[in-house]
Amino acid sequence: MERALKWIAAEYHDLNGTHYDTLEGPPSSLDFSRLVHVARPVVIKNCSLPGYDTASWTNEFLIQQMGDRNISVAATPNGHADAVTLGPDGRLILVELVLRLDPSDARETSSSGREVLYLQSQNGNMYTSRYFDLNEDSLVSEAIDKPPDAVNLWIGNERSVTSIHSDPYENIYTVVRGAKHFTLLPPTEGWCMKERLYPHAAYIRSPTRPN
């Protein structure tokens, strides 16, 4: 079986290579629809979020928009949220800790460097939180004739890491501030990940944390 999987992966690589297209501006709705059907990575430059002045998304602006509503953030000592980690007994475990924090408290905790906070909820938090007035007349809506299933706002820092995973749908990722590095694997190499079930655990915050 493994020999056959290696052959399929090699054939896919020979046909597709590691090339990805780069567009210098946003495509038309028709071209975007074609990109979705091809299902290959593409980088789109000079493409802002329609209806959003993201240049004004400073820390102060985001805190103001979120108001006094608590937000759910992943808190870890190393920035690896929802990640497989070596436990104290030497076993691999899936570990996490999700906190409900006031936005100002989250900023203070993140700045302290004691732990890494990562706003990374997957539940369409731009819909459910109502932090912003969503503009549904987007390139995506025009191309697929319906609003996106989910729109998420993720906030991290240079220590935040998204664990390896697979998504059953297409994604558009817009970097508003900073940078994000991606490692993409073709579906024919999913078997290399040796997917399996792991025991679940959670970090526990120390009651007394050093300054």
Rank of each mutant, 00 (worst) to 15 (best):
M1D: 10
M1W: 10
E2T: 15
K6C: 12
I8A: 11
G17H: 04
Y20S: 15
Y20M: 14
L23A: 09
P26W: 10
S29G: 12
S29T: 10
V36D: 03
A39N: 15
P50G: 01
S56D: 15
W57H: 07
W57E: 10
N59F: 06
I63A: 07
Q65D: 09
D68W: 08
R69P: 07
I71Q: 01
I71L: 02
D89M: 09
D89G: 10
V95L: 05
G113R: 02
G113H: 05
L119V: 04
N125P: 00
S129K: 12
R130Y: 11
E136P: 07
E136S: 13
D137H: 01
E142R: 09
A143C: 05
D145A: 15
D145P: 06
K146I: 08
A150R: 07
L153D: 01
I155N: 02
N157Y: 01
S160C: 06
V161I: 14
T162A: 14
T174C: 09
V175A: 12
G178P: 05
P187C: 11
E189S: 11
E189K: 03
E189A: 07
W191T: 00
L197H: 14
Y203D: 08
Y203P: 05
I204H: 08
S206M: 07
P207C: 02
T208Y: 11
P210G: 07
N211V: 13
